[in-house]
Simulated assay, not measured.
Amino acid sequence: MHTLLASLLILLALAAPAHAAPCGGDFNAFLATIGREAEAQGVSRRVVDAAFAGVAEDAAVLAFDRRQRGTFQKSFEQYAATRVSAGRVSRGKQLLQRHAALLGRIERQYGVPPELLVAIWGLESDFGSGDMGSRPVVRTLATLAHDCRRTELFQRELIAALKIVQRGDLPLRDMVGAFAGELGQTQFLPSSYLKYGVDYDGNGHVDLRHSVPDVLASTANLLRTNGWQAGAPFTEGTANFEVMREWNRAVVYRKTMALFAARLAAR
């Protein structure tokens, strides 16, 4: 979890709105200000009212945020051993076969190899069968936005979450995620959901919680948009390994992605 949060904190902070709502103070007044800003950006009053109805600060989110330390305290060998298990590799190979046609089409369009996409999918949510988070995203992001430590960043993410609902991609009941508001089977922050999300199943919605085609194509689109070189290696020291910084800045995590992909590709 928290992959894209780790990747985008700095970039989002630099791209924060120039006139952020004042953090701290009365929570409901803060939400009212955010609601007006969301409306100015095209979110309907109906969506704002529905999203903010009954929302209160989440003490557990603040506690989790404050006790976080560096995610990757272990060595690469220690970390990879816990994430790239024989069972997970076996399951990943089964999914490579099951979705071969889909993954092949995505590779032709975006240039990202199937084994890397399946590795990311496995690491982030155990191929959609694991924990994608169960916290209401609007409540989580409103809590973090109201906190003054990174208010501009999370105000941006909160408004992006409202835009996902406004766009009709996910209903409010499906806007649930992890402790920093990450959504879906490969854990996109809301701003990345809007920027990189692809309606690959053609149903008119970008659904990164339920649609495998949307999940895999959107993940490939993020990498391609940030400079992925089709057909080139992606191990440590390569240009593609640097592109993978846009997924996660930690070298240990990116090396684990590459290791998992290599094991999936092995006969």
Results as ranks from 00 to 15, higher is better:
residue 189 L to G: 08
residue 79 Y to A: 04
residue 138 V to R: 10
residue 36 R to E: 15
residue 108 R to N: 11
residue 68 Q to A: 02
residue 84 V to W: 05
residue 58 D to S: 13
residue 173 R to N: 11
residue 194 L to M: 08
residue 5 L to W: 15
residue 174 D to E: 14
residue 1 M to Q: 12
residue 147 D to K: 06
residue 43 V to I: 07
residue 30 F to R: 12
residue 185 Q to P: 04
residue 10 I to N: 15
residue 66 R to E: 12
residue 217 A to Q: 09
residue 20 A to C: 13
residue 141 L to Q: 08
residue 111 G to D: 02
residue 88 R to S: 06
residue 100 A to M: 08
residue 261 A to P: 12
residue 237 G to P: 12
residue 223 L to K: 06
residue 110 Y to R: 04
residue 89 V to D: 03
residue 156 R to W: 07
residue 198 V to L: 02
residue 253 Y to S: 00
residue 140 T to H: 11
residue 28 N to G: 14
residue 225 T to F: 01
residue 57 E to S: 14
residue 114 P to C: 02
residue 82 T to Q: 12
residue 177 G to Y: 00
residue 90 S to Q: 15
residue 33 T to G: 12
residue 115 E to L: 00
residue 17 P to C: 12
residue 72 F to G: 06
residue 69 R to A: 15
residue 97 Q to H: 12
residue 195 K to S: 13
residue 157 E to F: 04
residue 132 M to L: 15
residue 47 V to K: 02
residue 251 V to G: 04
residue 95 L to E: 00
residue 233 P to N: 09
residue 21 A to Y: 05
residue 257 M to H: 02
residue 45 R to H: 14
residue 225 T to W: 08
residue 1 M to A: 14
residue 155 Q to T: 08
residue 262 A to V: 06
residue 94 Q to R: 15
residue 65 D to Q: 13
residue 253 Y to G: 03
residue 48 V to I: 10
residue 181 G to P: 03
residue 183 L to A: 00
residue 54 G to M: 04
residue 91 R to K: 12
residue 150 R to Q: 12
residue 172 L to V: 05
residue 64 F to L: 13
residue 191 S to H: 10
residue 129 S to F: 06
residue 111 G to C: 03
residue 183 L to C: 05
residue 155 Q to N: 07
residue 205 H to C: 01
residue 159 I to G: 12
residue 91 R to W: 05
residue 50 A to I: 08
residue 77 E to S: 13
residue 49 D to Y: 03
residue 227 G to M: 05
residue 47 V to I: 15
residue 123 L to A: 10
